[in-house]
C-alpha cells in the first residue's frame, strides 16, 4: 500500500512538471510534438528509476556535506554509460531516444528526486518513486505535446487528423506556445483540486514546500488573502 502511494503521488499529487515545477526546460523544449514528448518522457523515466536506485544504494556512505556533488557525478556518469551502451547495442532505440539522453544529464527532476526522496528512502520505495515520477512526467509531457502538436500542425503523433485541417496557431509549436498550454493545464488542475477540496469542506493547499510559491519571488496568493 505504501509502495503504491510512492508510485501514485508522482502522477497527480506531486506531478514533477505540473506541481513540483521541475525540469521546465526540457518540458517546454521537447513538447512541440507528441512523439518527441513521449520519447523524452520514456528516456527520463528510465534514467530516473536507475539513478534513484543508485543514489538509494549509496545514501548511507555519502557524507551529508558533499552529497549533491556526489549525486551529480553519479548521475552524469550513469547517463553517459547508458548513452554509450545504447549507441552500441540498441541501434533502433538509440535512433528514437538518442537525442534526448544528453538533455537528461542536466534535468533537475533526476537530481531533485535523488535529493528529496532517494537519499532518504530504501531501494524499493525509491524504485517506485522513480517509476511514478517518470510516469507522471511522461504523461504530462505527452498531453502538452499532443495539444501543441494538434494546434500548430493539426497532427497527433505525426498522423494528420484531417486532410483539410486549417493550420491555426503556428506559435503553439514554438516556446511561447509551450508556456500557454502549460498555464492552461495548471489552471485546470488547480480548479479541479480546489473544487474537490471545497466539496470535502477544506481549504486546498499544495503539498508543503512543493508548490511554486515557496520560492517567495512572487507572493501573489498570500497577498490576495
Amino acid at each position: 500500500m505504501n509502495l503504491w502511494k510512492d508510485f501514485s503521488k508522482g502522477i497527480w499529487k506531486e506531478n514533477p512538471v505540473l506541481v513540483l515545477m521541475l525540469g521546465m526546460c526540457p518540458s517546454l523544449a521537447t513538447t512541440s510534438s507528441g512523439s518527441n514528448a513521449l520519447g523524452m518522457g520514456l528516456a527520463t523515466t528510465f534514467v530516473l528509476v536507475c539513478s534513484n536506485l543508485a543514489i538509494s544504494s549509496i545514501r548511507k556512505i555519502v557524507p551529508g556535506k558533499i552529497r549533491i556533488p556526489c549525486y551529480i557525478v553519479v548521475i552524469a556518469a550513469f547517463v553517459t554509460v547508458v548513452d554509450l551502451l545504447m549507441q552500441a547495442y540498441t541501434g533502433a532505440l538509440y535512433e528514437a531516444l538518442g537525442i534526448f539522453i544528453p538533455l537528461i544529464v542536466v534535468n533537475c527532476i533526476v537530481l531533485g528526486r535523488a535529493e528529496a526522496f532517494a537519499s532518504k528512502h530504501g531501494l524499493l520505495s525509491s524504485f517506485m518513486d522513480g517509476l511514478g515520477m517518470g510516469c507522471g512526467f511522461t504523461l504530462a509531457l505527452t498531453i502538452i505535446g499532443l495539444i501543441r502538436e494538434f494546434l500548430s500542425a493539426g497532427t497527433l503523433f505525426n498522423v494528420l487528423v484531417s486532410e483539410n485541417y486549417p493550420v491555426l496557431f503556428s506559435v503553439m509549436g514554438q516556446a511561447p506556445g509551450g508556456f500557454m498550454v502549460m498555464g492552461f493545464i495548471l489552471a485546470g488542475m488547480n480548479f479541479l483540486n480546489m473544487r474537490k477540496a471545497r466539496k470535502e469542506g477544506r481549504d486546498f493547499v499544495n503539498p508543503v514546500d512543493m508548490d511554486c510559491k515557496h520560492c517567495m519571488i512572487c507572493r501573489i496568493t498570500d497577498e490576495d488573502k
Partner: peptide, 30 residues
C-alpha cells in the same frame, strides 16, 4: 570530504572509461 569526492569521481571516471572501451568496437560496427 575531499578524498571521498575524489574517490567518487575516480570511480565514475573509471566506469566511463571502461564503458567507452568496451563499446568502442560495437559502436563503430553499428
Amino acid at each position: 570530504l575531499g578524498i571521498f569526492l575524489f574517490l567518487v569521481c575516480a570511480v565514475a571516471a573509471t566506469v566511463m572509461c571502461f564503458a567507452n572501451g568496451v563499446t568502442r568496437i560495437p559502436r563503430r560496427q553499428a
